[in-house]
Amino acid sequence: MKAVIGSSIGRKIVSALLAIYLLTYGLTAVVVYTGVRRSLLEFAEGGLAQVADLKYQRLSNRMDELATDLTAWAQLEVMNDLVSGDVDRRIGTTLEALQRLYGLTGEIYAFDAAGALIADADGNGGSPPPGTHLPAAWTVTARSATFFDKHRNPLGAGDVIALAIPVFGSFAPDYHVGTLVIALPWSTVETLLNGVEARTMLVRLPPDSMVLSSAADPSPEPESRIIGRSVRRDGLLRSWQVVVSQPVSVVTRPLRQVALELTLLGILLAAPIFAFVRWMGRRLTAPIMELTRAVRVIADTDRLDIQVPVTSRDELGFLARSFNHMTVGLRNAREERDRSMRDLEHLNLTLEGKVANGQPNWKPRSPPSVG
């Protein structure tokens, strides 16, 4: 590094100022880059939370709609036939009609007060065997619709969610005549989650925490992700939460352009700064170089008539004026010395002449003694 910079004051000034620029700009670029990255991550996290909340709201709205429909169906007059065992099969026909009308992909079951299956509408084309009773997993105690979380279908195959509501006779509001159940396949929930993209998960909140649905991550290697969660709400799905995630590398991809632009900006700024610093270094060191050359000339030729130009009123100008004043003083002193030497030589010649003209005993008068 020392060999590159050299011993020149100008180069040292240029190197020092450029080092300051690089350090300052580097720190500024790091701060800008970090701030942009943090803003991108915060924005992405907020966006993912909104997406998760929308997905959760879609699920919640669908479950609320089913609960409303189930409540209305339980109040139909035909449900009174649960008491007689639906001998004329009016309940079964009604359930099948409701399934077609509402486009349900699951099953609807009607059980009497003893828990025996009276009628059903199976969207999958199959029916439970005769003598089927109300599963313990679908037992309800409240008068309103009850939501049953993801579980194995007790009357079929696969995982389902279920809504169940007790049915009371229209002839006696407090007389329990049976139970009405809607069982939806779990694939219906996943469809409402937009096919469960790789970044979407449905989880169950504590105390029974678990992932209810999640697609496989297509990434060959695990990577850090940004996570957005739906807002926790009361309701049928109060134990559920939708989690949407996205790889950090996807969110921070625009930072490559930011880094490139910061680098190009640094290079563009460095060019005029380098030119200015180089010009300033030369301007500051030019008087010193003039002074150095003058000193070298004096040392080589013993000339004292050398003068350096005074180009400023600052410290360098003061140094140049002082140098010029010094050379003038030295020149005057040398001239005075030469004059004295000539006078002494002339005096010596005069004395020698007098001695040669016959004044051998002449001696210079001694100066009077003092004291």
Rank of each mutant, 00 (worst) to 15 (best):
Thr252Arg: 14
Leu66Arg: 12
Ile118Glu: 01
Glu107Asp: 13
Asp314Pro: 13
Pro247Glu: 05
Ala216Asp: 12
Val32Pro: 08
Ser366Asn: 09
Leu180Gln: 03
Ala110Phe: 03
Trp279Asp: 07
Val231Thr: 13
Asp208Gln: 15
Leu265His: 04
Phe323Cys: 08
Ser219Thr: 13
Val297Phe: 05
Leu192Met: 11
Pro129Thr: 10
Leu27Lys: 00
Ala270Met: 09
Leu18His: 09
Leu48Thr: 06
Ala136Asn: 03
Ile227Glu: 10
Leu104Glu: 05
Leu237Arg: 05
Leu101Asn: 01
Val310Cys: 11
Leu95Ala: 01
Leu117Arg: 04
Asp88Val: 09
Pro368Val: 08
Glu261Phe: 11
Leu236Pro: 09
Ala119Asp: 02
Asp149Tyr: 04
Gln307Pro: 14
Arg37Ile: 00
Ser340Thr: 15
Arg90Met: 06
His325Cys: 04
Arg293Gly: 10
Val248Pro: 06
Ser245Ala: 14
Pro272Ile: 01
Gly115Asp: 04
Leu117Gln: 04
Leu59Glu: 02
Trp240Cys: 03
Lys363Gln: 11
Arg37Asp: 07
Phe148Glu: 02
Ala299Met: 06
Ala164Asp: 06
Trp186Tyr: 09
Leu319Phe: 15
Thr34Val: 09
Gly235Met: 10
Ala52Met: 07
Ala16Cys: 04
Met79Ala: 01
Gln359Lys: 08
Gly103Lys: 06
Ile227Tyr: 14
Phe171Tyr: 11
Leu330Asn: 06
Asp338Gln: 15
Glu290Pro: 08
Pro367Ala: 11
Gly156Val: 10
Leu347Cys: 00
Thr188Pro: 00
Gly47Ser: 10
Gly103Leu: 03
Tyr25Ser: 02
Leu344Gln: 09
Glu197Asn: 10
Leu48Met: 06
Ile13Cys: 01
Ala157Thr: 12
Leu265Lys: 05
Ile5Trp: 07
Ser239His: 11
Ser60Thr: 14
Ala74Ser: 15
Asp300Leu: 15
Pro364Lys: 10
Arg283Ile: 07
Val196Tyr: 03
Leu59Tyr: 06
Leu76His: 04
Met63Thr: 13
Thr188Leu: 01
Gly26Met: 08
Pro360Arg: 09
Phe168Ser: 03
Trp138Gly: 01
Ser7Asp: 05
Ala67Gln: 10
Arg238Cys: 03
Ser214Met: 13
Leu101Val: 00
Ser84Gly: 10
Asp53Arg: 07
Ser187Lys: 09
Val244Gln: 07
Leu41Pro: 05
Asp338Val: 12
Thr141Pro: 00
Glu290Asp: 15
Ala157Leu: 12
Tyr102Trp: 05
Pro272Leu: 00
Leu134Lys: 08
Leu48Phe: 08
Pro367Trp: 11
Thr311Cys: 07
Phe148Ser: 01
His151Cys: 02
Leu41Val: 14
Ala299Ser: 10
Gly85Lys: 03
Pro367Met: 12
His176Trp: 03
Ala145Gly: 06
Asp122Glu: 10
Leu70Asp: 07
Gly85Met: 02
